[in-house]
Amino acid sequence: MKRRKFIKYSSFASIGASLFPMSIVEGLGKQSASHLIQLSAASTQIRHGALNLPFAEFLKSELPFDWLVDVQQNIFFKDGFQRNEAEDMNVISIALKEKENFEALQVSIKGNEISLLWKDQYVSLNQMKTIQDLPFEDDTYTFQLVKLHTDQSIEFDQDPKRSYFIQVLDGEVLNGSNLLNSTNGLGIISESKPLALNARVNSSVLIISRLQGI
C-alpha cells in the first residue's frame, strides 16, 4: 500500500482562528465540507463493568461519513472501584467500515502512554514525534498521531481523494472556530486547502483517513 505523507509541520507559533474558516456540511456527500460531531461522554467502568453498550452496526445520521460507524469512550478504573486519573485506562473505540462489516480501532491512554490496536496490530508509544505515522498495514485506512505542545500549530495539505476524521485524544485544539477535544470529532471531506490545528494545551490528536469511493 502506498501511503501519502500528507501532513507537514508548520513552525507557526499561533494561528488566527479565522484564517481557515470551516463550513458545516448540510448533508452527506457534499464536496469540500467539514462536520463537527458530538460524542457521548465516557462511561466509567468498575471491575465488574457491565460494558453492555453494543456497537452500532448501522450508520448514525449525525456521523460525517458512511465509513465511520461509531465512537465510544470508556474509562476503566485501575483499582476496580474508584477514579485514579494517573492509573486508569481510558479507551476510545472507533468503529470503521470494513467491507460489509466493521473493525474497531482501540486507542488506550494511560498516563503518558498511548497504545493503539488495529485488527491484530498493536503499537504502544510513550515518547512521540510531533507527527507519527502509525505502522499499521492496511489497504484502506491510514492512521497518524499528532502531538502538540501548548500554542503549537500545525498545518497540513489534504489529499482531495481522501476524507479525514480528526479525534482529539487528550487536550484541546482549535480548528478555525471549532474547539476540538475528547467530547467531539471532526470529519472532513475533500478539503482542497490546508487544514490547521492550534493546540490550546498539550494535546494528542488522532487522524484517520480513507480513500473516497471505496
Binding site: 460494558l51 482501540q106 485488527k119
Partner: peptide, 23 residues
Amino acid sequence: ATYGPFVMNEQSEIMQAMRDYQV
C-alpha cells in the same frame, strides 16, 4: 491486567478483548 469485565495478563490483551467483543 483486569479492566472492566475482562481479566488477561497484559493491557494489549484487554484492548484485543474490547475489539473482539465489539466486532
